[in-house]
Every structure is written in structure tokens, then in C-alpha cells.
Design a protein around this nucleic acid. Sequence first.
DNA 1: AAATTATACAACATGGTGTCGGATTATTCA
DNA 2: TGAATAATCCGACACCATGTTGTATAATTT
Lengths: 187, 187
Amino acid sequence: MKKREEITAQTKQNIIDAFWGLYCEKRIEKIKVRDITDKAGYNRGTFYEYFTDVYDVLEHIENSLIPTLDELPPVSMPSGTIGMPLDMFLKLYEQNSRYYSVLLGDNGDPAFASKLKNSIKPTIVKVFADKQNVDQIELDYIMEYTLSAMIGIMSYWVKRSEHLTSEKLFELIFRLMEEGVMKQLPR
Amino acid sequence: MKKREEITAQTKQNIIDAFWGLYCEKRIEKIKVRDITDKAGYNRGTFYEYFTDVYDVLEHIENSLIPTLDELPPVSMPSGTIGMPLDMFLKLYEQNSRYYSVLLGDNGDPAFASKLKNSIKPTIVKVFADKQNVDQIELDYIMEYTLSAMIGIMSYWVKRSEHLTSEKLFELIFRLMEEGVMKQLPR
DNA sequence: AAATTATACAACATGGTGTCGGATTATTCA
DNA sequence: TGAATAATCCGACACCATGTTGTATAATTT
């Protein structure tokens, strides 16, 4: 006989897992509470003991995937170069690729990309911090450019089941950031 | 007395406009058919004469915003440089900023970004075409990087109500692409 | 082992969906 | 012109999903 807390934690997790199975296959608007509880093996009413609606489940999952400042993965890069946030970002993706590929994909949640960007921003700000001669507005644009590019290429990477080693990918992004796109296309 | 076709075209447009008004304010899952027809001044049943459901309206709008190959805006740039697709992209954004800022925003549709990328891809392929020494796989990654960065920074631009001239923005992106991110941060 | 607490369920009222047939308005053609 | 035809738009219907409430059952406490 299991403890109460373990049971409810298990139930909640079962609901989450059932939801995620469905979310990987179809758009969230096509997922009914009934579908989830059927798949998880509970009564429909039980769902509402844990979540307010289908979107609440997604939010729960998303929040567990957004690193807070203090729990960002440790980096092995010297600070002050683009290598630092890049290394951190890559670790995040490696840890959560199963989820990121869906959340950042075509049936994903556009708000999740924003949340992710905001959680990474402070690290990049640090890299840019000692660059004094740049206009703040321009810096914001460069920030958005950098974050979008990183998220874009890494999403592509996990979607392609990582058919490049993470070292190769790191190398490539580093070069793209340091030297620009066109320099990577010789001839 | 107006012609039949004009009336129905008008009705359809009224429904689209009403939908868009709501879509700018809230997530699509909160938009009911009833809300749309109330705002447009029709019976709820009339909606189904024109669209199958709420998502169908969005798809209709999206399709009208994805340029087909032959109707891409004309560019004033020499081909073979990143300036060409960049110029094209910028024109697209200027023409449709009202819609793009919403569709590519936090309450937007992640699939729309993909559609847009795919419609632009051929133009960038042209730019990359004469670069022979690069691995195809690596090229795909660079493509994704480029497209994501462009869409990201331009979405930011239209969201900020274009508080940079398009020329300034063009200049900035051009430099970021040609010389890299870090080179834009002196000191 | 009895009392207490909490989990999971069945049943209900409400509200949204999509589809009819019919009323009304515009167009066609005698 | 005006009767016949065709289409738009509407009201009503059956169905499904939602979210809530009261209750049986199982676990924990004393």
C-alpha cells in the first residue's frame, strides 16, 4: 500500500504523460480532457483535481523546462565570449531535447520561445556588458538576433535527431557568431 | 443594390476582420464562433457558410500572407549577396507588419514562421548556390540559422513599431550577417 | 478498529458546435 | 415589368465538451 502523496504524485504524472503523448501527435486545441483521462485510465472528473484545463497541463510542463537563474547548467567556457551562453544553451537543449523539439516546433507554443529567450538573456547581457560603445537600442536588436538564431538552429538540430555532434554544432554556431554567415561560405 | 458576389465577399471579409480584431487581443482558443459573428453582426450559423471553424479563418489569413514564388516583392539588390533575400524580407515585413507582428508573436502561430521560412528559402538557396565547398548538411544548418535570425530580429522590429528606419535595420542585419555578432560589439 | 482525511468517480447543468429547413433578399429571364 | 429562380442569412435542433458537486472508496491517524 503506497503513501497518499506518492499516489497523487503518480496520478498527476500519469495525466501529464498522457497529455504529452497526445501533444506530440496533434495540436493542443484538438486535445480534449476526455482524451487525456481515457489514455491515462481515469475518470474525466479526476483531471480537474489536478489541473484547471488542458492548457494548464502544458503550462506546468513548460515551467519545469524553463531554468531559473540559479539552476542554469554550469558552463565550461570563459565568460566574456559568446561561447559561454552558447555552451549553456547547448546543455539545456541536450538535457531537454525530447521536449524542446515539440514545444519549439510547428505545433508548439510560440510563448515558450519567448520564455526561453528571457531566461537566457541575462547570461548574454553579461557577455555584452563590457562593450560600452554600442547604442542600447542597437544592442537590443543584436540580442534578439542572437537569441533567435541560436534557438532556431538548435531546434533544427534536435528535430533532425542531432545528426551532428554537439561539438560540431557548437563549432559551427561559434563561427557563425564570430565571423558572420557569409564567411562560412567560401568561394 | 449591390451585386451578389460583392455582398458575399463583403460578408466574408467582415467575418475575417471581426476575427482579426479578436485575435489581436487574445489567444485563438478563447475565440468562439459566437464572439466573431456578434462582432461582425451576423447570425452564428452564417459563419459556417464561409468557414469550417475558427482555425479555418486563421489559415485563410495566413495563406494570403505567404508570398508565392512569382509574387515575391521585387528586389533592388545585386543577386549573389545576402542583401537580396534581406531586401526582399524587409519589404515583405513592411507590407504586412500589422499581421506579421501578431502571427509571429507570443499568441501567434508557430507554423506560420515555418511557412514563411519555406517561402523565402529558394531565394537564399540562390545566394548560397555558387558556394561549392560547403557540406550540404552544414548548409542546411546555416540556412536555418539565417532564416531564424532574420525573422527574429524583424519580428522584434515590427513589435517595437519600427523605431529604427528600415535602412538602419537593413544595415545592421547586413553587418551581422557579413561580419558576425561579436564584431558589432567593439572594445 | 473507529474516526478522519483525501482520492477517484458518477451525474448534472451549462455552453459551444455544427447542421438542418425555411424566410428573405437579390438576380434572371420571359 | 414581374414571376421564377437562386442565393444569403437566420432560427432551431441534436450533440458533445466543459466544469462542478455530492458520494463511495481507500488510505492514514489515533
